[in-house]
Design a protein around this nucleic acid. Structure first.
Length: 493
RNA sequence: GCCAAGGUGGCAGAGUGGCCUUACGCGGUCGCCUGCAGAGCGACUACACGCCGGUUCGAAUCCGGCCCUUGGCUCCA
């Protein structure tokens, strides 16, 4: 059972073998904090999270680093907008705080560190100096550019040749030797044209011409280029050569291509051995993106749909295929989640009931649990096929229900195995919350509902079904669904 | 134009040569169960694989060509 992953570098499925057999160094290209995170980001996060969790499950010690880009013209563009903040750093902090809150809400495993560009300018400058000394970069008028012609392998990730890239004329930065050269360090302050471009025509700003932050460097006052930060932070917090580098497919070129060029030019080592790219999330027939303004923010979606349904929704398509937003699809995922959760609860209650015996053995049940276990593992090992893995969990739910419906006395060991499988794969690997008691509010509300249910039960016993149904309908109108079972009436919000 | 991913049943979405799985789920139909409903179980429905050729005893799955969609081509997860 070896893990195979689709490496963008080769375009092929490759056996996964970390440099150190016990550890995995994982870097995920995080966000530029210039807006609220949306479901497209959330989808990638959840998949990165599951990769992390699966590697944990496989016994690796995962060192996971995730950067936050807090220096960018788009951030500066929002200075003075509403309560976002009155400086680049303040705006970045506003969105960073929300981003981390969104991640917690999505039940993502924490990265080891969330490094920020503003905290790594020293390392960035050191890396740029190394590149200049090695002849891979040149300085012009206080700006420093990477000379793509000096790096032989340029284009190996996106499978493009310089000839294909070069015709894309840049225009404004004429001090570059070649159009494809990219900035490592930019002289002066923010690009005011870029800031203006990113301002929203319908929004009001307290500051008309905001400044971005600048730093001293050997080439004078300036700002770091976009790509250099990830190289610097990956090397600082992990190593000069790491195992996995992940990100959205839209980053393959130029961002990741440039990261490879500058990193490998500087160190002479392979920057990352496996490049995994999550495909994009679509809104209708175009991608969901901040710049297109067609996005659903995470902070709105989590309360609306719930974290478990959202995670199931994202995992119901594999990370390297596109997925399209639709409320109907998310509601379907919610039903799927409910089915899994309800089977888990039934198994737990049955295992604790007097009807469960260690002397009862349902061979079919055991075989189904074995099968779910093997299928889940095989699916995940084949490039994290979460959809197939989800299928295995559905089968497990069916197996539990079939057993409980078919037997009057229950197979205790079988139930325990099913429960453990749900917990291992559903909770630990997929990050679903099976054990949490819905919202964990065993309060006055619960007692009141119980009271109403008792009254309803009395009416039912007396044959007053009209009255009983009326109570059920009225509870339903309040958002409380009830369900009569052999073991009494259950309800959920 | 170049690079990349993809085109599968009403929807959504796995499957990469012959257990075809018409996977799993949603939807729909019918049974069981239930006072009813819901949930659950069982059965059925949908016998699909962009188009045209080719390889093969046999292809959704391999090869060639074409059409279309999405993404990237220096703001992008």
């Amino acid at each position: 059972m070896t893990l195979r992953v689709l490496n963008t570098l080769s375009g092929e499925l490759e056996p996964f073998e970390p440099a150190d057999p016990d550890d995995v160094l994982l870097y995920y290209c995080g966000l530029t904090v210039s807006d609220f995170a949306h479901l497209g980001h959330a989808r990638t996060w959840v998949h990165v999270d599951v990769v992390h969790r699966w590697l944990d499950h496989a016994g690796y010690d995962v060192r996971h680093v995730e950067n936050i880009t807090d220096v960018n013209e788009k951030i500066v563009a929002r200075v003075g907008e509403g309560d976002l903040g009155d400086s680049e750093r303040a705006v970045a902090t506003t969105f960073t705080d929300q981003l981390l809150a969104d991640m917690r809400a999505l039940n993502l495993k924490r990265a080891e560190v969330y490094p920020r560009v503003t905290e790594h300018v020293t390392e960035i400058i050191d890396l740029v100096e190394t590149l200049i000394e090695a002849g891979y970069a040149y300085e012009t008028d206080g700006s420093v550019y990477f000379d793509v012609h000096s790096f032989e392998d340029y284009g190996k990730l996106s499978n493009q040749t310089l000839d294909a890239v070069e015709p894309q004329e840049d225009g404004d930065r004429s001090e570059k030797r070649n159009p494809a050269d990219f900035a490592l360090w930019k002289a002066g302050g923010v690009d005011t044209d870029a800031v203006t471009d990113h301002r929203h025509p319908d929004r009001e700003y307290d500051v008309t011409t905001p400044d971005g932050e600048t730093w001293d460097s050997p080439w004078g006052e300036g700002r770091p280029g976009w790509h250099i930060e990830c190289s610097a932070m990956s090397m600082t917090h992990l190593d000069s050569s790491i195992d996995i580098h992940m990100g959205g497919r839209d980053l393959v070129f130029p961002h990741h291509e440039n990261e490879i060029a500058q990193s490998e030019a500087a160190t002479g080592e392979q920057f990352a051995r496996y490049w995994l790219h999550a495909d994009l999330f679509q809104m209708g027939d175009e991608k969901m993106s901040s710049s297109l303004g067609n996005f659903v923010p995470v902070k709105d979606a989590v309360p609306q749909f719930g974290v478990n349904p959202l995670r199931v929704f994202f995992l119901s398509a594999s990370y390297n295929s596109t997925q399209t937003y639709s409320e109907a699809a998310i509601h379907e995922a919610e039903e799927r989640w409910e089915r899994l959760h309800s089977a888990y609860r039934r198994a737990s209650e049955a295992a604790d009931s007097a009807a469960a015996h260690t002397t009862v053995t349902d061979e079919d049940f055991h075989a189904a649990v074995d099968d779910a276990d093997e299928s889940f593992t095989a699916a995940m090992n084949e490039d994290f096929n979460t959809r197939e893995a989800l299928t295995a969990l559905s089968s497990l739910a069916s197996a539990v229900n079939t057993h409980l419906d078919g037997y009057d006395e229950y197979d205790y060991r079988g139930l325990r195995r099913a429960i453990e499988t749900f917990e291992t794969f559903g909770e630990d690997v997929f990050g679903l919350d099976f054990t949490g008691t819905s919202e964990g509010t065993a309060t006055l509300a619960d007692e009141l509902v119980s009271l109403v249910l008792d009254v309803r039960e009395d009416e039912r016993s007396a044959g007053n079904y009209e009255r009983a149904d009326q109570l059920r309908d009225e509870l339903g109108a309040l958002g409380i669904e009830i369900q009569d079972t052999d073991d009494g009436t259950e309800y959920r919000l």
